[in-house]
Design a protein around this nucleic acid. Sequence first.
RNA 1: GCGGGCGUAGCUCAGUGGUAGAGCAUCUGCCUUCCAAGCAGAUGGUCGCGCGUUCGAAUCGCGUCGCCCGCUCCA
Length: 538
Amino acid sequence: MPAVSLDQIISLCKRRGFIFPGSEIYGGLQGAYDFGPLGVELKNNLINDWWRSNVYERDDMEGIDASILMNRLVWKYSGHEETFNDPLVDCRNCKSRWRADHIKDKCPNCGSTDLTEPRPFNMMFKTQVGPVADSGSFAYLRPETAQGIFANFSNVLATTSRKLPFGIAQVGKAFRNEINPRNFLFRVREFEQMEIEFFVMPGSDETWHERWLEARLAWWESIGVRRERISIYDVPADELAHYSKRTYDLMYDYPSIGVQEIEGIANRTDYDLGSHSKDQASLGLTARVNLNEDSTARLTYFDHESKRHLVPYVIEPSAGVGRCVLAVLCEAYDEEQIKAPSAERLQSVADALSAFLKSAGKSEKIRPEQRDALIAQGQSLADALAERLPEVETLLAMPGADEIELGKKLRGQAQPILDEHYRTVLHLRPRLAPVKVAVFPLKRNHEQIVATAKQIRRQLQAESGVRTVYDDSGAIGKLYRRQDEIGTPYCITVDFDTLGEGKAPGHAGTVTVRDRDTMAQERVPIGELQTYLREKLR
RNA sequence: GCGGGCGUAGCUCAGUGGUAGAGCAUCUGCCUUCCAAGCAGAUGGUCGCGCGUUCGAAUCGCGUCGCCCGCUCCA
């Protein structure tokens, strides 16, 4: 059973060290999250995969890493100073808040004209540069990494002798002062972008836009995000960003929060390179740019065929790393039944469930439509509790469910049975898994078994470079499940047979390798482990 | 930002004015143990934070921070 609520993912992330709320010891900071020991591995693996697939496996791409702080004029001419700046007004009567440019003198909600003066709200974070804090000494934290690429267009062109079409890729942090960060990694104030600016001949932009759409869809599929969970949103003209002629948003169907953007693929035309150029009138620009009196450069490309300088068009595939991590986790998440719970124990959950539903039916704290949805869901669950036990959590995650006091009791009844009869497993692609291999001793107080297991672990990590961990803090079944939960593809167990002390003398010098997805085991000679795993982990 | 709900041990929760609890997890021993429940012991919380009411506050009031839901906002 795949993830049905974001809470399941959030809980796993916190519990196992993928992602923590930022600054938690001081009560947290809204819209900031920290990646833990496993999270950083997963995130780095994703970024590396993106880089490999977009930079190394193509012939038309270079990479850069630009600074986060840039001259303020970058943001003046990119249009962000103007467009990332929304004047807001509050209605004193009904307490609603609106964008001043979206309403006329009257609150659309209650019709009141008792509005506050418009107050500017800038999405860009400001910081002071240098020791003197006067009005001219500030810079913005970049709201997108893209401008670092545009600003370096001529540098890259001059140092690499690239011909159109070619692209520049970059991964880095960006910052937006979101009014209301929400939904875990989905909307945060500090995030990482994986961006490509792909420069093409004007006129070929539409073809390249389509090609990139296909290329990006293929990448998402290659990291385990099923095609049928992604939809393409052709952004209507009135919703386009100020720099875009056309944009395809790739939308992923997240649990709890529904269909949301995971990547934007925009046709930015000649807007950015043109905006940052001097002598704009002579460049034959098609985009409407602001007059630039500060730039010292023409960001143009000399086309040898037509013998003229031109401003390339730009296709920009831009994905958020956090949203990507989240989507990959949601896709990989699974709860599987290992063995059937006894009728007696199921009955205790069934009783708690029916008490919960009775209480929900009488509750006046929740809205009728929420109550009806809860009861409908609960009843269908009650009819097939044996097969659908994990959905108790789903039920309790529904809007309004936490208003019902008996919910905690229901969870308390279901939890121990779930722990024992189900496993949580992340079916991550092996190359994305934070840990590739775990090594266990079958018995943790047998000196020789422990020593052999530790030796195997050391050797594998040192010689093959794959992330390998050792664990002996529990019975073997518990160790397997612990690794399942973080998506470790292979577990190696050293047992008595390995030492030649078991019932199968022929197995001396071999260990069992257990597959995460099938739970099947295979005996492999210790000396062949490295080759065996290299093959499997590819 | 508004409205509603929530915040007690790493996790799930009990505790409604009188000395902070349980189960699981973790750690240390013991056990020939391949798919989470063996045995014994131990660690761990100024009850989100602050102020107030009270002889006394996890419990009551106010404020604040964070999270969740719905609006709003936002790519």
